Computed example of a mutant assay.
Amino acid sequence: MRNIASESLKVTEPISLKEISTSIDLEASEKKKDKELNKLREKLSKHQDIMYAHNKYSVLICLQGMDTAGKDSLIREVFKEFNPRGVVVHSFKTPSKLELQHDYLWRHVIALPQRGKYGVFNRTHYENVLVTRVHPSYILGENIPGINSIEDITEEFWEKRFDQINNFEKQISENGTIILKFFLHLGKEEQRQRLLRRLNKAKHNWKFSPGDLKERGRWDDYQKYYEEAINKTSKPHAPWYVIPSDNKETARVLVAKAILERMEQITDIQEPELDESISQHILMYKDMLSKEVI
């Protein structure tokens, strides 16, 4: 299998999505990719167990992409070997009435992972500089002081929002949250084929919404705003990775590999040593249990 360096997918300088391919050849069969993914997720699971015991770091995985990009299936396949206690997935939909009574980051803050755990955001706080840019009228529902009409939503407003997101990620990073952000880069033709499959297969019909076609009609706008968001918020402590996603199996391998490589760089994540007061009496505790009468 072809080895794709995760660093080559990381955004470290301004990118143009049009210049990045939505497909990449790993030179491997689907069976080989499944085998590789299985190895990666087993290593991730074992590492998470150690991180849980270490109890100093948490991990935030952010997944963004156009409709049908494969976010749900990627989560299922990459994290399926994890102990259920070690990973929590949040899928952020249209804000509720309660959520709109707070600032736009509130619902994401309260969903952040505890120390020792992974949190996976399926759609993220970036929806607030993506969907709301394509549909700025949504901002009016946030009831923000000074924003009374679409005309009040200026470029300065968006720049402030990018600053707020960067500050939010910097703050949680400095307090022990490891952040990795993945844009599942899907081709427009591939999306068309996936939408057709949803319509052609009865068991997948429920996934289709006429709104999918409406949003597809704004494809170029979404690509423009994704590109801007990625360029303005990919930082060393919270990097974006652009993942070619026309092939779902390939995307899963690339994401799992990037996560594992990042986690292996953090060398102080170790299993905690047993307290000396306990370790000195291990033999005694064993003897007590072995002689216990039930």
Rank of each mutant, 00 (worst) to 15 (best):
N3I: 11
P14H: 04
I15Q: 13
S16V: 00
E19T: 02
T22E: 06
D25A: 03
A28H: 05
S29N: 03
E30L: 09
S45R: 03
K46H: 02
Q48F: 01
Y52S: 04
A53H: 02
L60M: 12
I61C: 09
G65R: 02
L74N: 12
V78D: 10
K80W: 04
V88C: 06
P95Y: 00
E99R: 06
H102D: 07
D103Y: 12
R107V: 01
R107E: 05
L112A: 05
F121T: 07
F121V: 10
N122R: 12
H125V: 05
Y126F: 14
E127L: 01
V134G: 09
Y138V: 08
I139T: 08
L140R: 08
L140V: 12
L140T: 09
N148Q: 14
S149T: 14
S149I: 12
I150L: 15
E151K: 15
E155K: 14
E159M: 04
F162M: 08
Q171H: 07
Q171M: 14
I172V: 11
S173H: 14
E174T: 00
T177V: 15
I178Q: 07
I178T: 08
I179R: 12
L195V: 02
L196Q: 15
L196I: 08
R198Y: 12
K201F: 14
D212K: 03
D212N: 07
L213N: 06
L213T: 07
G217Y: 09
K224E: 08
Y226P: 02
Y226V: 05
K232S: 01
S234L: 05
H237Q: 11
A238W: 05
P239T: 05
D246G: 03
D246Y: 07
E249H: 12
V253H: 11
A256T: 03
A256E: 07
L260S: 10
E261K: 09
E261W: 09
E261L: 13
E264Y: 03
L274H: 02
E276N: 13
Q280T: 09
I282F: 15
K286W: 09
L289Q: 10
